[in-house]
Design a protein around this nucleic acid. Structure first.
Lengths: 329, 329
DNA sequence: TTGTAAGCGTTATCAC
DNA sequence: GTGATAACGCTTACAA
């Protein structure tokens, strides 16, 4: 692998001149520049990034830390990497699942050890206090960060407008003539529930929550709940489901109970996992803007790294979802 | 951030001694070592990896290149990262989807530019020639590599014994009393088909292939094919399906056609995606050993990086699948 | 057992 | 415009 020195020798100029010619940041005679560029190309030169980093004190590594190993995060990661690469940054990953006890501390240590230019935290959406702690620690260490999907509102995060997504879906159900639109989900994520309530209020209807009384029992699977739904004395004619996963369970259960979808009951999921298109009937669902989320995270993080001022509304950004209408509703 | 110099000054010894004390590779007086270690700890010292890399000429970056953005690769990636981290290597990612035309060339250029210690190629299982080309290029550039799931047999790759997986599944179906066990899949991946044929031969039965005559038409979705299956004049009583995705389509279709699963027809998928457990009925399927695949890739790659001799049978390794029995078969 | 000094490949300062 | 030369923080011969 060729070095600056080799090119300097071959072009009969000094290293400094080669450096200037290649980066185009100083005055170099046009002829000399041409020659140097040609030689560099013929040598297949590409700078040693390690040396550059050491000298400039700058890193071009962005570290992503992930809790959930799933396809949604994978797509967000892909969007992130594409944007970073476009700006000559590289993406490294850290899967927290491989950490043991005291994983947050270990994660932070590992981050500090690697001295990345910035960090992207893909939160698990269930630990706002942890998010805050991590954010504080990183700020203190002088490392730029952006989170993805944090529900803590005092950290910089790219968020997805889940509330609006559910709102849109419920209005779609109503527009389709559905009268009794229910919600089946978890209270631990309030954003979707809030969107449902807003929509029902907008429609002037009373909310119907399918959260059954013994939901606290973790041993009952979603499928079991689905079966309970089919046994309700009065079935709703539409259900907004928390996630595609739960919607899948429900769909099968409804089929098994002989309930026609969407004729008797419409169902809408959330996430738009690839499987949604393969369900029977193909699942209408609220799509997360995965690639865009990753791209937005890259955009914000690079600005922070560059030392830009935070915009008046802060760094956080909320991206819209997209209702994907298929056959289930 | 503290440097070796700072610790040396504070401990009243030379940089060299600090280095030795911390790495434990030379003779250092016990007292001195204790003191240095204490000071280093109080300073929160951690070595500058960039400087170390530059000096030693070694990189501790492993680069993973991925074609498919899905949860299976994500799990393999997680397994890979965990193992690498355990050996103080870090994992960087490159998603080929973000490359434009001529993506293979671009990918190789990007790999060379970054000078990683090694490369893991997560192939798309459909381009053996490309795999070979990439492998040759990397070897020529002196970069250690390992592939994941390559179907080219002259490259080093961690493979999954899909053939055996399907074989096991078909035998399971037979053990459950199924008489007419069919296979529904793509010919483009022959490994699974071969496993099916082997099993049927072992059972002394004739294979039943559900690949319908107009399978060449890409516009027909899997669901459409599923419907065709329900319309067969004589239905099989078990189907080994190519993938969980296709099995999902099929399951819904069969339900819609009023076919009881597994009573009338048993179905087995392949992959064990998380969704499989949520299907109705929960899908019996052949699980890919994702984390293990990633770990094996790390293991082999690190050996190659260390300059170890290839074992007599070559670097490639084939991992067993695991039959996950749920309710669909 | 410990210290001195050179060097990894780049970038940046300054004088010519 | 261009060229010596120092410096980034670490590792490692070699000397003491």
């Amino acid at each position: 692998m060729a070095h600056l020195k080799d090119i300097a020798r071959a072009s009969k100029v000094s290293i400094r001149t080669v450096s200037r010619a290649l980066k185009g940041n100083g005055y170099v005679d046009t002829d000399v520049r041409q020659r140097v560029l040609r030689v560099a190309k013929s040598f297949g030169y590409s700078p040693n990034l390690t040396a550059r980093s050491l000298r400039t004190g700058k890193s071009f590594d962005v570290l992503a830390a992930l809790w959930h190993v799933d396809e949604l995060n994978m797509a967000k990661l892909a969007g992130l990497e594409g944007s970073l690469r476009h700006h000559d940054y590289q993406l490294s990953c850290l899967f927290t699942s491989a950490f043991g006890e005291d994983s947050t501390k270990q994660l932070l240590q590992e981050i500090l050890r690697r001295r990345p230019a910035g960090v992207v935290i893909f939160t698990d959406r269930f630990s706002p206090q942890r998010d805050c702690y991590i954010a504080r620690s990183l700020v203190q260490a002088g490392i730029s960060y952006i989170m993805v999907d944090s529900v803590a509102d005092d950290v910089d995060s790219v968020r997805i407008d889940r509330s609006q997504g559910v709102y849109d879906a419920v209005l779609h159900l109503a527009a389709g003539g559905r009268q009794r639109i229910a919600y089946w989900g978890l209270t631990s994520d309030s954003t979707r529930w809030v969107g449902y309530l807003r929509a029902m209020q907008q429609l002037g209807r009373s909310p119907i929550c399918l959260e059954l009384e013994d939901l606290g029992d973790d041993n009952l699977s979603w499928a079991t709940y689905g079966r309970k739904i089919t046994q309700l004395s009065s079935l709703p004619d539409a259900i907004q489901v928390f996630s595609d996963s739960m919607a899948f369970s429900l769909l099968g259960t409804l089929h098994a109970a002989g309930i026609q979808i969407p004729q008797q009951l419409a169902a809408v999921g959330f996430d738009d996992r690839p499987m949604a298109a393969l369900a029977w009937p193909p699942l209408t669902t609220v799509a997360q803007p995965c690639r865009e989320t990753g791209a937005a995270a890259a955009d914000i993080l690079l600005q922070k790294i560059a030392g830009a001022e935070a915009p008046p509304q802060g760094w956080s950004r909320t991206l819209p979802t997209r209702l994907v209408i298929r056959e289930s509703a």
